[in-house]
C-alpha cells in the first residue's frame, strides 16, 4: 500500500458513486468539490464505501480530511497501514 494506491481507491469510489463525472484529469492538490460536482451527500457516500469495501472508519468530524486526493491520501494512508498490520 502506498499513497498513490490510496488516491486510486478514492478515485474508484468516486467513479462508482458519480459515474457521470469525468475523472481523467483530477488534480490531487485541488479540492474535489472545486473540480467535480460533488456535495456533502456524495462525501457521505465516499465515507460509507470506505467502510463497506475496506473496513476503514472515518468519524463525521473528520470528513473534511477527504477534501482533496492529497489530503485523503495523507489521512487514510495510516488507516490502511494499520489495517494491513492487524
Amino acid at each position: 500500500m502506498d499513497k498513490e494506491k490510496v488516491k486510486q481507491i478514492v478515485l474508484d469510489i468516486i467513479a462508482e458513486i458519480a459515474p457521470d463525472e469525468d475523472l481523467t484529469d483530477v488534480k490531487p492538490e485541488i479540492r474535489l468539490r472545486d473540480q467535480l460536482d460533488l456535495d456533502s451527500m456524495d462525501f457521505l457516500d465516499i465515507v460509507m464505501e470506505l467502510r463497506k469495501k475496506h473496513g476503514i472508519e472515518v468519524p463525521e468530524a473528520e470528513y473534511r480530511q477527504l477534501e482533496s486526493l492529497d489530503s485523503s491520501a495523507e489521512y487514510l494512508f495510516p488507516k490502511f497501514e494499520a489495517k494491513a498490520v492487524a
Partner: peptide, 18 residues
Amino acid sequence: SGKASPLIRLCRQLRIPF
C-alpha cells in the same frame, strides 16, 4: 444542469442511471 437538479442528485444517491 448536472447535480443542481434534484432528480439527478436522487439518481446518484440511489445509483440508478438517469
